[in-house]
Computed example of a mutant assay.
Amino acid sequence: MENPNTQTLYRYWNELRAGRDAPGRSEVDPRRISGSLETMFILEARDDGQMRFRLAGTRLCEWLGMEARGCMAEAVMAPGHEQELSDLARRVLRSPGVGVMRLRAVDNAGTDWSGEALLLPLRSELGDLARVMGCVNLDAVDRRRKPQPPLRLRSLGSRLTPIEIDPGLAAQDASARMAADPLGALRAPDGGKTGGPSRGFAEAPAGFGHAPREDAVEHRPQLTAIEGNPSAPRDADPTAPRRGRPNLRLVKD
Rank of each mutant, 00 (worst) to 15 (best):
R199H: 05
G184T: 03
S198Y: 00
L151W: 04
I163S: 03
S155L: 10
N229C: 10
P241A: 14
G168N: 13
P212Q: 09
S158K: 02
T239F: 14
A179M: 14
G192T: 15
G196H: 04
A179S: 07
L160G: 04
M178W: 13
R213G: 12
T194D: 02
P182D: 01
F201K: 13
I163K: 05
P238T: 05
P238Q: 02
L169K: 15
A206D: 12
L151I: 01
A174E: 13
P182C: 06
P189S: 00
G195E: 09
R159T: 14
L153H: 11
A202G: 09
A170G: 07
N247Q: 10
N229T: 03
G228M: 06
A232E: 12
M178K: 14
S155A: 12
R213S: 04
A185P: 07
P149K: 00
P230F: 10
I165M: 03
P167T: 06
P167N: 06
S175K: 10
A216M: 07
E218R: 13
S158T: 10
G196S: 10
R177P: 01
L169E: 14
E214N: 09
A202P: 13
R152N: 09
A188Y: 04
R243G: 02
G207H: 07
P230L: 10
N247Y: 13
R243M: 09
A180I: 01
G192N: 15
A206Y: 12
L151K: 01
A170R: 13
A206M: 09
F208Y: 06
R199W: 11
P197W: 03
F201R: 10
A185V: 10
A240N: 12
T161K: 10
G195P: 05
A185D: 06
T224R: 15
S155V: 00
E164D: 11
P189C: 02
E203D: 11
A206H: 11
P189V: 05
D166H: 01
A240D: 13
P189L: 09
P238K: 05
R213H: 12
R177H: 14
A179V: 00
S198E: 04
D181V: 01
R154T: 04
D181G: 11
G196L: 08
R245M: 01
L156G: 10
E214C: 00
P221Y: 01
P189R: 00
S158E: 06
P212C: 06
L186F: 15
D235L: 13
